[in-house]
Design a protein around this nucleic acid. Sequence first.
DNA 1: ACTATATTTCGACAATTCCAGAAATATAGT
DNA 2: ACTATATTTCTGGAATTGTCGAAATATAGT
Lengths: 96, 96
Amino acid sequence: MDIEIAAKALKELGHPIRLSIYKRLVKAGQPGMAVGKLQEELKIPNSTLSHHIASLASAQLLSQTRDGRTLYCQAEYEHFEALIEFLQAECCADEM
Amino acid sequence: MDIEIAAKALKELGHPIRLSIYKRLVKAGQPGMAVGKLQEELKIPNSTLSHHIASLASAQLLSQTRDGRTLYCQAEYEHFEALIEFLQAECCADEM
DNA sequence: ACTATATTTCGACAATTCCAGAAATATAGT
DNA sequence: ACTATATTTCTGGAATTGTCGAAATATAGT
């Protein structure tokens, strides 16, 4: 992972709503979580939620799959793991 | 660390210049790195650099100490560690 | 085809961020 | 006090982001 990619991922995670979305998706595991379910939990307008989801997707932090008329979002956990590894490799003092 | 604090730190790290600054500061270790030295390496206007440094400081990601007429920036590594721990605790699938 | 549900796109506006030149401030040496 | 160096603050404009209502699109059931 290069620094531009890492910065992009950090930037998109760097918003309370998006971080909260991402956190929920990770907890939801593989099946993911429907956009509607997220909206219900977060209680924000669907258009706003949709934008934030698109932001996270633009940083490859989540993917979406459709099942009938509901869209499920899944955390792209590998990308997140790579980010953490990047941070630990590049921004890590000796002590760790 | 609460989610607002974490998002703030992620946001400030989520910029290529700032991430690069932070990375250098961590590598510089305890004595830190002079603003002038950072400017020399990054080759950006001092005002721009100063803003980015202030951003990082506003998220408690660095601190500054003066030695004569040079200001040294030090990475606030503990805060960063807490951020990583937060991410691993809140956004972590079973596998890790 | 019609209707209902789920989600995204459009359009608009306010707020924030980014960048950099110029000026100001702080400190040290003479 | 004067000069030089280091860094920050001020100012302002361009670009981006955040938010949300309204409209559009996608899918499925009848």
